[in-house]
Write a protein that binds this DNA or RNA. Structure first.
Lengths: 339, 339
DNA sequence: TTGTAGGCGTTATCAA
DNA sequence: TTGATAACGCCTACAA
């Protein structure tokens, strides 16, 4: 069954496709009477414009691609939900691209998005050097790019990030106030932007507050629950161990809490745990988890808004870099250190 | 900066666009030598086919729309992740449409997807009667539709669902084995497919096992955490109350657990809680939650595969209806009733 | 094996 | 205020 097009409408009304197009697009130069008839006929026939044809002429598709590592990560699903809200209001569609941490997938997806002529791309890039030229090409070719969560050096484009370094710094500072002097950490993917920034802030604070932090107390959990769980087990089964431990994303936090539970360590009496990101479970588990939270809602909204500005704005602006703050949610997994 | 197209390649090589098109698409009728040169030149120029133009000719866009109520619901993000895996392998893109439970959004999104000529739509429909004709029109117009999670009566199309009725029935049966005779429930959206099916199974089992179930013990939490939390508070603060309570989705389960915690009711000693769906937090909270789990992975894979079959298959098949089983995960929130 | 040309459904330009 | 027509980039008969 054939879709009805403006030609059908024109034929039915004995007018031309040019007039129909003008009328339907709200351009002037069509008599009110004819315009009304055209609208009625379009509705009657159930006309829906063909976005492909329109896109070819206007090179505008009202579609934006979103590159993330994993949609099952609540951090991403929250951010995306928030992006979707602002983009939907302007009739844009989102193409979700689950990239894992795989540069190959990132590359293939970017090419797929280019071939579909998306108006823009919002991406949390893997950070692999290899794909940097790809992103640069996008920018050069007029496909608007907004980075979030992670940034890539010297890429001239808008970005929305959280001050990750300050976040872990503040976490350590908070633990310091509770008298902790021996601290451990399970960090994320070391070569990733968020991973390294958070680790940096941690070490800085450890130094500033003159805390004890042995090498065996700091391990990489790759932002993965299972790996983080194992790291936590290793750290916590040492005879001489830290009185507090920091996890550097939501999966890692989960892994730590699971390990703690298995080892029957009393939190926060025997050990304080500082989480990162927020999640439903952190509010209901025992104890509830004190954590550094990223403003997912604002991140998504800001990224989407920046993209819209870039896509719909006429003038060329210079790249914006929005840096947001993570905030500390006080719950019950951090306590005073035992004397 | 202009995108490279086959015309550019043809010009550079002094051949025709037809030959370039044939070569690049792997059609025969091009000498090996020329074909090789074309591929090299295409790579050199960074040619990426224009999907819009291609779509106009072939009426194939390698794009599928996915309609869901909320991407932040882990149930949906898991299902989508699984769909994405199978669709990515065949070079398809997913357009995510967060519909809430709003039929207006559902309608607008469907039209948006039609205008973008998606090859198919995988949907968890709101179920609103008003939009039934819309779905029928899709099917008639050759846009393949696969329903999941929820189905709409008499829509002739593929679907993947879980036997919701059997799921809650089994939940009650399990509680019965633990000696529970007084049972309550917080159900979901009553007019929704999943909501009503689960409630039906519950009542059926209650009758079969001759349990006591007062009207005040059964309330609608609309699959919403806050509402479910309030319902749970109401049910559990009654003097004469059930010894077990069933929650009918993940958000509801969370609400119940929060209420239980606030009322300092000991689970499972004073009250057994049976959850629905699975989530990270159910594994770490205290007690861990015994729950009826849907096979999200299989659901997503099956739905995506059915869609691909429909889209890529040549012959017309009759609609497939796949019914999967929910399974019971035994953890610690259900116990024997106090004597 | 290769090239020419028509058309997919729009929008935009130029005449009328 | 209207209408004819040329693109947009690709695929695909049909011709050579």
């Amino acid at each position: 069954m054939k879709r009805v097009n403006i030609k059908d409408i024109a034929k039915e009304l004995g007018t031309s496709i040019a007039t129909v197009s003008r009328a339907l697009n709200g351009k002037e130069g069509v008599s009110d009477e004819l315009r009304k008839k055209i609208f009625e006929k379009a509705k009657e026939l159930g006309y829906i414009a063909n976005g492909l044809a329109r896109g070819m002429k206007t090179s505008k598709t009202f579609t934006v691609g979103v590159l993330i590592s994993d949609i099952r990560n609540p951090y991403f699903s929250e951010v995306i939900s928030s992006m979707e809200r602002v983009l939907y209001a302007k009739n844009y569609n989102l193409m979700i691209c689950n990239v894992g941490e795989n540069p190959e997938r990132e590359k293939k997806y970017i090419n797929l998005l280019v071939s579909k002529n998306v108006d823009g791309i919002i991406a949390a890039p893997t950070g692999d050097e290899k794909n940097l030229p790809l992103y640069k090409k996008l920018v050069r070719h007029g496909i608007k790019v907004v980075l979030f969560d992670r940034i890539i050096g010297d890429l001239q484009t808008d970005s929305v990030i959280v001050d990750n370094e300050a976040a872990t710094y503040e976490a350590v500072k908070y633990l310091n106030r509770f008298g902790h002097r021996r601290i451990g950490a399970i960090y994320g993917i070391e070569k990733s932007y968020t991973g390294s920034e958070r680790l940096k802030g941690f070490f800085e604070a450890v130094k500033d507050f003159k805390m004890e932090c042995k090498d065996e107390w700091v391990k990489g959990g790759e932002f993965n629950e299972e790996k983080s769980y194992k790291c936590a087990l290793e750290i916590l089964s040492q005879k001489y161990r830290p009185t507090a431990i920091i996890a550097m994303n939501n999966f890692t936090t989960l892994g730590v809490m699971r390990a703690v539970k298995e080892l029957k360590i009393n939190v926060p009496d025997e050990l304080s745990v500082m989480g990162f990101d927020d999640a439903e479970w952190m509010k209901v588990c025992s104890p509830t988890v004190t954590t550094m939270v990223q403003p997912t809602d604002v991140i998504g909204m800001t990224a989407a808004t920046l993209l819209l500005d870039a896509v719909e704005g006429e003038l060329v602006r210079k790249p914006q870099k929005v840096v947001l703050k993570a905030s500390l949610i006080k719950r019950n997994s951090v306590g005073f250190v035992e004397k």
